[in-house]
Amino acid sequence: MEKKELNWAVLGCGVIANEMAQALEKMGKRLYAVGNRTHEKAVAFAEKYQVSKVYDDFSEMFEDPEVDVIYITTPHNTHLEFAKKAILGGKHVFCEKSVMLNSRELEETVRLAKEKQVVFAEAMTIWHMPIYKKLWEFVRLGETGSFSMEEIAKENPAYEMIESGIPALGKVQLLQLNFGSYKEYNMKNRFFNMNLAGGAMLDIGVYALSLTRSFMASQPNAIMSQVKYAPTGADEQSNIILKNPDGQMASITLSLHSKQPKRAVISCEKGYIEIMEYPRADKAIIVEAETGKVHTVTAGATANALQYEMQDMEDAILNGNTGIMHLEHTTDVMAIMTQLRKEWNVKYPGEVW
């Protein structure tokens, strides 16, 4: 694709849309267009961020020849409809997590995007934070048991870690992740409302599962779980245990009505990595098993999370670097979430599995 400045449009005017507009400003750009079901909110949003175009009918966004890429920030259960319309209009689509409700919807959307030769990807911060790019490469290189500095290029994300003397940790063996938020028992809000695809799995579980899958060598094929339901029938709380063919295991605890730290521990053969606030992390602690020595690793900045996402999306569109969007991992995570919700019988109104 010929290099050009991409025109971004956003569908929705909520928290993520505001962060997205601010991220574009950090990139030295402005949001081109905004659409929203409530037109007055779109107008106010446009005035706040000096957006060039506001649609009287937000569906006009899908056919606007000046729009290159659309960021969909609306509720989960609207993603399929809006993504398909955008793709049919020839737009690249960046879709807020959870990218779809289930694997059937995701497969349909991915297939359509391939047919129309546009980039479709999930706006999952974990795929794009610099700290993870550094840690993934460090773990990959360390699985052999040692590092050879002569073979590691300086542009390698993990170069500084290896140069500083952090030893190889060996194979990832175990992962433990927590994510708990305390949400008031208002059954009409999006967190518990089945009509808005509520529940812990699609709202916060997607982060834990995405991080887990990113450090596992293969897709988990053994899955066990326990679930507690909210009064609406949404999944309020759960424990999930995963194991893949490589023998790697993970334990995940989620809650929408009990506060927990957003904490991830990746246990390797010769040490462990601890990450706090992992959805938008910029720091990790590495502890050596034999000596107990502690290393602090930093990369990027939490405040720039959406900027990293959007820069990678532009790279995928303009340079064909689609691997950086990790759609294969998004697909694996969606398969796990779909299987679990089927087992729990947490099915949303009108949803087709």
Rank of each mutant, 00 (worst) to 15 (best):
M1R: 01
W8S: 01
C13G: 05
C13E: 02
G14L: 06
I16E: 05
A17P: 12
N18M: 09
A21C: 12
A21T: 09
A23H: 11
A23M: 12
L24C: 12
G28R: 11
K29V: 01
Y32K: 12
A33E: 12
V34C: 10
K41E: 03
A42Q: 01
A44K: 02
E47Y: 04
E47L: 03
E47H: 15
E47W: 01
V51N: 11
Y55R: 11
F58N: 13
S59N: 14
S59V: 11
M61V: 09
M61I: 14
V67R: 13
V69E: 11
N77C: 07
L80C: 01
L80M: 03
E81K: 12
F82Y: 14
G90F: 10
K91G: 11
C95Q: 14
C95N: 15
S98F: 13
M100Q: 05
N102W: 02
S103L: 12
L106S: 05
E108L: 14
E108K: 14
T109V: 15
A113D: 08
V118N: 08
F120S: 06
E122V: 02
A123M: 08
I131T: 05
E137L: 01
G142A: 11
G142N: 01
G145P: 02
S148W: 09
A153G: 13
E160S: 14
M161P: 03
I162G: 07
I162V: 10
I162C: 05
S164I: 01
G165W: 07
Q173C: 10
Q176N: 04
L177N: 02
N178F: 00
F179R: 14
S181T: 06
Y185Q: 03
K188G: 09
N195A: 08
A197M: 05
A197H: 12
G199T: 04
M201I: 04
D203Y: 14
I204G: 10
I204M: 13
A208D: 15
L209A: 14
R213V: 05
S218A: 13
S218F: 02
S225E: 13
S225Y: 15
V227C: 09
P231I: 11
P231D: 08
T232D: 10
T232K: 10
D235P: 06
Q237M: 09
P245D: 00
D246K: 12
A250R: 11
S251W: 13
I252C: 13
K262R: 09
A264P: 00
Y272G: 00
I273L: 03
I273D: 02
E274M: 00
R280N: 13
A281Q: 14
D282I: 04
A284C: 06
V287F: 06
T291G: 03
T298A: 10
A303D: 15
N304Q: 14
A305T: 08
Y308D: 05
E309Q: 11
M310T: 00
M310P: 04
D312P: 02
D315Q: 04
I317M: 02
L318A: 03
M325G: 00
E328I: 13
I336C: 03
I336D: 05
M337G: 04
M337K: 03
T338Y: 12
L340P: 12
K342A: 01
K342S: 05
K347E: 06
Y348S: 00
P349Q: 03
P349L: 07
